[in-house]
Design a protein around this nucleic acid. Structure first.
Lengths: 344, 344
DNA sequence: GTGAAAGCGCTAACAT
DNA sequence: ATGTTAGCGCTTTCAC
């Protein structure tokens, strides 16, 4: 059935230890002759070492766990792809998990990953399992938070400057003459959403924009349509809007389409996140792009530092903050829009 | 450091085997008293079994490998999500790999996954490592092909009826009065692309459409633009077009936008794949939707059958074929288009 | 240079 | 009902 190191040793007429040395490329401990002998025997038997057994002994699995909120979102995917690329280069594999922002699922995954002895974990934290995060850190599990910060947990973190990015987006809208700007996000349960809202608030304050409670919407995706209907039924309508992420955008676009609102004439629009089709919409869509590939790589590197102990596992937490890039397209420009009434 | 089953046994004053029985919920082999004792001891010590050690012994890792072409594509993501959901229910974890259609990467991943003793593998095959696929099957590794068939490998397969789906799409275009229909796919290296092209050819034949070599484009993504330029520079232009997948679509949309071609008046368009924003484009986009969630679940189930040996590992291969659904929207309709020159 | 032996943490007969 | 024992396949001292 399965061919083991013992089979190789016997057939090559050497001991298990020598074969093991060979496998670990410690050729200095053997004659060129035995080395040759082992090599051919391995080929003949088509032997492949059992990594499980090795891992048990070495206490390293060359596997890391990645827990995202929901991989179906563009941002998560790009991050996952970057992480997978990076870890492949490092000869590490990635176990992928979707928490769906559910603290129970997150807990189960974290515990399973630990039990499976992964070498490290990258997490889009729900923020609701703080004591578990702390426990993991205490037990020296390399742990890195992505996209969101969690107060009080001494763990590495990679985030973007959410507040600043939204501030700039709002400022851009203000420069286009808008005074009545709305923002919509999912519930303010995680740091990135809170920070985006804060960036908006600061912009409203500092740029002297119209300050209204109704312009700050934070609710579940399913409620967005009705909130929008309400917002636009009144007389105090916003003239511009920021979508807090891709999901929120989809709802807003539906609303706009259903109500035939001219963009940007009646409503200017900016979305937070790299939307793959932003440049194909009519009008094209202004977006706040997160540097997902760089973030993924950075996260991978920080985690690897801890795993290889280049940076002590119990060292102080490191936080890496990336800047976003505002990609200005037609949906936020005051300028007259082109004559195209079709894609083009 | 790490707390083991031995620690629990000692502290609880029982033997390792009893603790092991407890862990495996074989409570009939112990008194309520010892059971209680073990339970509290485990809690006190915050003991967690080392799954690695268990796996080594049991020869099951509760982990499966999924190798997709590129997770960044909508189709792959949805499949991955469905797979992850299904396997979570089965208490299995998923190692995710991106092959980028590169046979070397695919080979490395397949070998690593086998060495890591995964319980099964789901693969979007490049088709170029046939002997390796065969070897895996021979060595009783549960292996399932997704999205593409591979001739001559006795392995379970989940695909859609690509030919039929494209036939129907072409037929729909013909019904709208089109005689000159083009199709663009990536290179015809995998079965799904070949089958889509075949469906087109059959439709052209059977429905008496104009048969021209220039209308059947299959090339790398990077070449699509120039191919399109060529196609539309001539006098024999198509009046309708089918995009072989999401990536192809993006190129076509760019071309259409750059050249301000009215859709569907000058060019009707249908895309193969569930495009998340199809209903938000102007005009809305007709699409051939694959039942990704069902496919993912089906694939998961077929693989689990083999893993649990409900179906013998050496049994005959099973092929599950799903039907696609043509979702007709504005981009393929002859009817006069609505007056909207914005999203709406 | 090479091999013997111990052990990673767990499970699973087999005794008792 | 509980304990003893023998591994799973590999790595790693430590002798020779």
């Amino acid at each position: 059935m399965m061919v083991t190191i013992t089979d190789v040793a016997e057939k090559a007429g050497v001991s298990k230890s020598t074969v093991s040395q060979y496998l670990n490329k410690r050729y200095e401990y053997m004659s060129a002759q035995t080395r040759q002998k082992i090599e051919t025997t391995i080929a003949e038997l088509d032997y492949q070492p059992n990594i499980l057994a090795r891992s048990l002994k070495q206490k390293r699995t060359s596997t890391i766990g990645v827990i995202v909120a929901n991989i179906v979102h563009g941002f998560s995917i790009e991050i996952c792809r970057a992480l997978e690329d990076y870890f492949q280069e490092q000869s590490m594999n990635v176990i992928l998990c979707n928490s769906d922002e559910d603290m129970e699922k997150e807990k189960t995954y974290l515990e399973t990953l630990q039990a499976k002895q992964v070498d490290g974990i990258i997490l889009f934290p729900t923020g609701e399992n703080k004591s578990l995060y702390k426990k993991l850190v205490k037990e020296r599990m390399p742990l890195l938070f992505l996209d969101r910060k969690v107060e009080g947990v001494l763990s590495d973190t990679v985030v973007v400057n959410n507040a600043e990015a939204v501030f700039q987006a709002t400022e851009h809208l203000a420069e286009q003459g808008h005074k009545r700007i709305a923002i919509i996000t999912e519930p303010l349960t995680i740091s990135s959403r809170i920070d985006r809202m804060e960036g908006y608030k600061r912009a409203v304050r500092e740029l002297g924009l119209e300050q209204r409670q109704e312009f700050m919407i934070h609710c579940e995706i399913g409620q967005i349509r009705s909130k929008l209907a309400e917002l636009f039924s009144g007389t105090e309508r916003p003239t511009a809007m920021i979508a807090g992420n891709e999901l929120v955008l989809m709802e807003i676009l539906s609303f706009i389409k259903n109500n035939q609102m001219p963009v940007p004439e009646e409503l200017a629009l900016i979305v937070f996140d790299n939307i793959s089709f932003a440049h194909l919409l009519t009008p094209t869509l202004t977006a706040i792009a997160q540097p997902t590939l760089e973030m993924g790589r950075a996260a991978g590197k920080l985690l690897m530092n801890r795993i290889t102990a280049d940076v002590p596992t119990n060292g102080p937490p490191r936080e890496q903050v990336f800047d976003c890039k505002l990609i200005i397209r037609e949906s936020s420009r005051r300028s007259t829009r082109p004559q195209n009434e079709f894609w083009g």
